[in-house]
Amino acid sequence: MALLEIKNLHASVAGKEILKGITLNLEPGEVHAIMGPNGTGKSTLSNVIAGRDGYEVTKGQVLLDGEDVLAMAADERARAGIFLAFQYPVEIPGVTTSAFLKTALNAKRRAEGKKEIDAMDFLKLVKAKTAVLGMPYDMIKRALNVGFSGGEKKRAEVLQMTMLEPRVAILDETDSGLDIDALKVVSDGVNSLRSPDRAFLVITHYQRLLDYIVPDHVHVLANGRVMATGGKELALELEAEGYAKYLETAA
């Protein structure tokens, strides 16, 4: 049984069908990349899996370890081990990164039947994780994402990921708005989390990110369907030739 199974997933937004039957299996330890032109359902796929309101699943299933993900509320999905790294992390004035991280971590610990982390242990943990990511520790005292640069926001997403240790991490266009240095830092963070019992779904428009986070499988998404699947060389081919042939096929 795959870690995450997406079976013939159909989803609509405001009555318009965006996903038209997606099937993907993520085995533990694997990194899957989803590439495709804008407006083909890449973000819809990540939002549907994470449980954002406003998307209607009309057919199909998403299973995490065989459990029906779509029956869970968004917060339950996260506690079950699904992590969505946002394309545009939300700025939340007044809520410190530290308070947010602690609340999220404790929510997960409670769900696992563990005690809440005490303040000292929490600070130690954050200190260690920020050091690994080359982030200034003081960042956690700032309001969540408020006034963060594009690179800082994405690093903060990776910090959250390393703290919460998800089973399946979905990276939604994590490379957007990043310069090459920030891209490298973020990719290093992601790579440090690769492990035999964790899977990644890396959604991107450009091949560049996949130089750093090297995928096991690459899928081309166009018009709400997976049009092609291959190894990492497929990404290079797309970079050279573009998406035109998949769009034509779809049309």
Binding site: G51, D75, F86, F100
Partner: peptide, 18 residues
């Protein structure tokens, strides 16, 4: 904002308080 917090496993009531 609520969805962002939910996506980190924070239940709706705690998220609202935060």
């Amino acid at each position: 904002h609520l969805f962002y917090l939910a996506a980190r496993g924070i239940d709706p009531e705690t998220a609202r308080s935060l």
